[in-house]
């Protein structure tokens, strides 16, 4: 009888946690030095990835202990639904028979290694699945790292300047339809810069370098965008659409 990997996780319930009329989407998010104070960045890699995904890897080394390292992978997907699938892939690619569901404040879904096992945490925020892993012989508590990243993703900064321009070629969009969203900044973001989009009335999808809003509920939709980068004032932009 051939074997089958039956995972002890309720995939359907995890998928149902994705909101259909509120969305957050991140492009280019990466850990900053401020997320890892006292640690040295030793590796920054863009890993080869299948279409629709990009994986940015950073490895942080303790300044005091050669055997203490933390690996952070940011798996950027097209949508929140795809990020849940990426999380399920992570769980399937873990040798442990079962991971423990983590504290609910870490994104829409999060899992950790049980006690006594090299620490690791996996969680989903918007369209990104993040894994933070104790990467060498000394066990490093990874939850605080995940919390710092999550807090920065949560952050909706006060913005003085709206220089992030959000536009669409549609004034209105029907339920179930997609409207392209064009965003422009007057400068190029640096290696640590990222864009954060929040949407209401539908979901946000990034596809082939373009951003789309998929309407789900009649009424008004709003898309807010933020350009965030260390050492630079945040900039924002807003776009309103009618959902028919």
């Amino acid at each position: 009888m051939p074997g089958e990997n039956v995972l002890p996780y309720d995939a359907r319930a995890l998928r149902q946690r994705i909101s259909e009329d509120r969305a957050e989407l991140f492009l280019g998010f990466t850990p900053w030095q401020q997320d890892a104070q006292g640690w040295n960045l030793s590796i920054r890699e863009k890993l080869a990835s299948p279409p629709g995904k990009s994986i940015r890897r950073t490895v942080w080394d303790s300044q005091d202990n050669r055997n203490a390292r933390v690996l952070i992978d940011i798996i950027e997907c097209s949508s929140a639904a795809d990020a849940i699938e990426a999380l399920l892939e992570e769980l399937a690619a873990n040798q442990l028979a079962r991971l423990v569901e983590a504290a609910p404040h870490l994104g829409v879904a999060s899992f950790v290694h049980p006690e006594g096992v090299p620490p690791a945490v996996f969680f989903v925020r918007g369209n990104i699945c993040i894994r933070v892993i104790s990467f060498a012989r000394s066990a490093v508590a990874v939850i605080p790292w995940a919390e710092r990243l999550n807090e920065r993703l949560n952050n909706e900064p006060r913005v003085e300047q709206n220089r992030l321009v959000l536009e669409s070629n549609r004034k209105s969009v029907a339920t179930g339809e997609e409207a392209p969203i064009f965003y422009t900044l007057p400068w190029m973001l640096g290696g640590d810069g990222f864009l954060k989009f929040l949407g209401s009335g539908g979901i946000l999808v990034a596809r082939e370098g373009r951003l789309f809003f998929k309407a789900s509920k009649r009424g008004e939709a709003q898309i807010r965008g933020y350009a965030l980068e260390p050492g630079r004032e945040p900039h924002a932009g807003v776009l309103n659409l009618i959902i028919e």
Binding site: E45, S49, P50, R57, R66, N67
Partner: peptide
């Protein structure tokens, strides 16, 4: 560690693995 570090879903991150070996870091 029980976590797949270099890719369960293809591709296998061979470049990253070789970088780790060559770094000499644990």
């Amino acid at each position: 560690t029980p976590v797949t570090m270099f890719g369960f879903t293809p591709p296998y991150q061979l470049t990253s693995y070789m970088n780790q070996i060559d770094s000499g870091l644990p």
